[in-house]
Design a protein around this nucleic acid. Structure first.
Length: 219
DNA sequence: CACCAGGCAAGTA
DNA sequence: TACTTGCATGGT
């Protein structure tokens, strides 16, 4: 009895890259801030921005709620789209104040489906950002879909290129047990794979997925 | 020099 | 509904 392909890929990636220890952050707030700052942005630039926030001691709910948006924008400048993202961070803090009295623990205790809907209502938080918060900050069993997931899995014919976010997400969640650790590692492994192998050396001999697929022509 | 990176919202047809 | 565009820095 052969396990399904979603598990096979997971085990192949895990065996090759090992545990990823995600999310790279010290606190739950740092996960949330990082999730917003990394939107269409290299993580290395996000690290610089977060480092600035720590250096100025503004990586707390209270200080973020009080800091001037322009000053905040200046600090996160290295992460790009800094005016936009300063506004998005503020939008989140205002949401937290209005709905959870600025209590991050209270927010993270909320029912996953309800919290997802609430966060999607915050301007600047889309599906990937929200699901990253749910999984990596709140510890909810929610699978995170990103551009790498789309690229790799559509290339291998497991999802359609035009599939909606929710559609792709449900394919993973139907084929995998609802386990936080599994979802955590899987998404992180996809990112690691995409960064280290997939884009740089497509179909190279060392690819851990090589034996699992007959790669479609054209790429 | 061009291109991309752990997206999202708003505008257009 | 399905495209297109603006947002912006820093690395390759």
């Amino acid at each position: 009895m052969r396990e399904n392909i979603f598990y096979e890929i997971y085990h192949a990636l895990y065996g090759f890259y090992g545990p990823q220890f995600w999310w790279p952050a010290e606190t739950q707030l740092e996960v949330i801030v990082g999730a917003i700052l990394t939107q269409n942005t290299a993580w290395k630039n996000v690290e610089k921005a977060i480092s600035n926030l720590k250096r100025h001691s503004v990586l707390s709910v209270e200080t973020l709620s009080e800091i001037d948006e322009g000053e905040l924008a200046a600090m996160i400048r290295p992460s790009g789209y800094y005016n936009l993202k300063a506004g998005r961070l503020k939008n989140f803090i205002v949401f937290l104040a209005d709905n959870y009295a600025l209590s991050l623990p209270d927010m993270l205790k909320q029912n996953a489906a309800r919290l997802r809907e609430q966060l999607l209502g915050v301007k600047g938080l889309g599906e990937e950002t929200v699901d990253s918060i749910l999984l990596y900050a709140a510890g909810k069993p929610v699978f995170v879909v990103d551009t790498y997931t789309r690229r790799i899995f559509s290339r291998h014919g497991l999802v359609e290129p035009g599939d909606s976010y929710r559609n792709i997400q449900s394919k993973f969640m139907k084929n995998l047990k609802s386990e936080i650790k599994l979802y955590n590692e899987y998404h992180a492994l996809i990112v690691s794979h995409a960064k280290t192998m997939c884009t740089k050396q497509p179909r190279c001999k060392e690819c851990p997925l090589r034996s699992l697929f007959k790669i479609k022509k054209g790429e």
